[in-house]
Design a protein around this nucleic acid. Sequence first.
DNA 1: CCTCCACTGGAAGATCGGGAAG
DNA 2: CTTCCCGATCTTCCAGTGGAGG
Length: 336
Amino acid sequence: MAMITDAHVLRPEFVPSDVVHRDSEVRHLSKALRPITDGEPGETALLGGPSGAGKTCIARFAVQRLRENALGINTQYVNCWEDYSRFKTLYRLLKGIDRAFDVHRQSTPKDELLERLRDHDGSPYVVVLDEADQLDDTGVLYDLYRTTGLTMVLIANRREDLFSRLDSRLVSRLQTTTHVRFEKYGFDALVSILEDRVRWGLRESAISTDQLQTIADDAAGDARVAITVLRTAARRADQDDADSITDEDVAEAIPEAKAEITQKSTRRLTDDQRTLYEIVTEHGEIAPGDLYERYTERVSSPRSKRMVRNYLRKLCHYNLLVAEGENRGRTYHSVS
DNA sequence: CCTCCACTGGAAGATCGGGAAG
DNA sequence: CTTCCCGATCTTCCAGTGGAGG
């Protein structure tokens, strides 16, 4: 008999039908969206806080609940880290209302995408823009803000990261809208989140409270990490045809889950980016000037310094590298 | 303190690749 | 075929910043 009864609930994108430990955040966000049920425009909402604090989950949950309470509301989730350009973001939004069918990358006249979005039938459209600070053209946010019938839920780790890159007109308008702050989960909250997932997705007594506490302790308030470790441990035990998860499964799942996350992000790198990653990993810590020098020695046709800085920013965002210090004092480290 | 300058990241424009139009 | 247009990528230029080292 399989130990995992529902693998779905252990997946990172799973949204529980009822969320716990985030009642006030849900209420706060729902309040901003409530006018939509009465045919009024919703308020732009801004969710901020560290990763794994439940921002994405709560955004999806609140939007889902809104859909259940009112008919004819369109919704779409966009991860701006993946769809980081204006074109990709707008394309994804058009897909959410089934109007992307004949858009081909080139043939489309400039900004036909935005016009198409504005032309749609007029039913409310609630869009979640996750990692909004990662857009390379934040001007699209201004255009979306000025699109009638469209309500934005913006998610960013740090509000100032987003604001510093926005059009000042938009900043002043967003100042007065709904801001929901998320804090890291406490230890007990994390354990209880894990307990729920175990109840929904694993056979009874598959894992002990002690083991869940070990996982929660390691995750340090990050629910995404905690759930990934739980999934990895469960998969290990399942492959061994075991009845329950052993302490060894948990111990090995912790580094394995982290390696899995790293590997997943490394695959998407270009040769230049991977070279930079390797140089920093080999050195452990390196100054920007040295790093660029090593890089030029190692590749046949090196990119410019400016481009390398873009690569490094990307590597930092993937959590493959850490940048420490500002300006002249900066060094790049490998993680761990 | 003060000055220098290594480094960052925004802005603007060049280049590339590929699909469409002529 | 060529020309045109687009997004994506990359370079060039530059203002701002704050640590190093007088």
